[in-house]
Design a protein around this nucleic acid. Sequence first.
DNA 1: TGTTAAGCGGAGATATCCTCCGCATATACC
DNA 2: GGTATATGCGGAGGATATCTCCGCTTAACA
Lengths: 193, 193
Amino acid sequence: MTDEKKPRRRPRSDGQRNRENLLNVAKAAFTAGEVDIPLDEIARRAGVGIGTLYRHFPNRDALIEAVYRAELDRLANAAPVLAAQHPPVEALRAWMRLFVDYIAAKLVIAPALNGLAGGTGTLYAQSGTVLQSAIDGLVAAAVASGEISADIEPVDLLRALAGVSNYAAGPGWETSAKRLVDILIAGSRVSAS
Amino acid sequence: MTDEKKPRRRPRSDGQRNRENLLNVAKAAFTAGEVDIPLDEIARRAGVGIGTLYRHFPNRDALIEAVYRAELDRLANAAPVLAAQHPPVEALRAWMRLFVDYIAAKLVIAPALNGLAGGTGTLYAQSGTVLQSAIDGLVAAAVASGEISADIEPVDLLRALAGVSNYAAGPGWETSAKRLVDILIAGSRVSAS
DNA sequence: TGTTAAGCGGAGATATCCTCCGCATATACC
DNA sequence: GGTATATGCGGAGGATATCTCCGCTTAACA
């Protein structure tokens, strides 16, 4: 149980390069809507063997999660920036709209998320932590400013938006998602008991 | 192109029985969380051959849709009843809560819905029609009574609720979904522009 | 430059979906 | 009842996908 960290050899350059390639190829495929592309195909496009893919990502879910983890981080990092630029409620609104944009651009790859039957919970629980703390901060600020009711569960707002993305195929989708943002914010205000 | 309906032989009793069995077994499995149970296994539990399963339901999606189509209808049928019993906005609220209850009891099998990678849109578009017209009616009444803003896309409310269910695993989930119902309704009121 | 651990890659074991088609039987008609 | 036949049954097996295993290669370190 000794938690010693061995002075391990630096990771091989080709290993890192292959990992990057795989992530890029996978992201391109998912973004293009090829959600259930075979893993062999991803490996082929990335110019590596299937074994390499599986060493880096033990299963499909792990790959998917890794693919958009980076995007999730970018999205989360936007929260403090917006908070500094806008008053609390508007920062929240802006960030929620950004969230919609990400989904619209498939940068958050909602369909891929959906594809994880059963595993969704686990995956989202891990990856979603960063998003959760991001919106927690925004909501907390808005509550502190007295504009938003205190008994809001911030994550629910995200979940609601993500839900709209799930069953969204039609062209006017993005508009209605943005409208939902306004509804959610209006419904969260203290005035609207 | 003659649209003649042939006087077909009455369907065989064993055929109908097998179909029922399959649906019951599948519903039980899905409700129990075995979302990606192999179809062979469903056939086995139902005491029929795999071929029989595939004749009744050409693919996995068809089975899933058939399984909870009945529940969807029940849920949709509750809308006019509630509308008769409550004032418009309260009827809407009550129905949305009922929707949450169905999801909570897995009667609407949200995870199974999610499991349909790519096909979600199509499936929901077909099965969801009944739900859509149900909530359309409720919202229309609430708009007519002047209590709810007219530029609400009713389906979005459903989508938002369904979204909460997607990433819902925790114990307190149902409570927060119900709270979201209130937020959505509050945000849809005309006063809260 | 030699040693060695880390990484590579693809054959193939396993699992799942779905098709096909000969056999069985419930229905309809006599 | 008895017979004809459409309808349904069922599982072997083809197609495809996931994931494992292990001998070979190569980058990192001295």
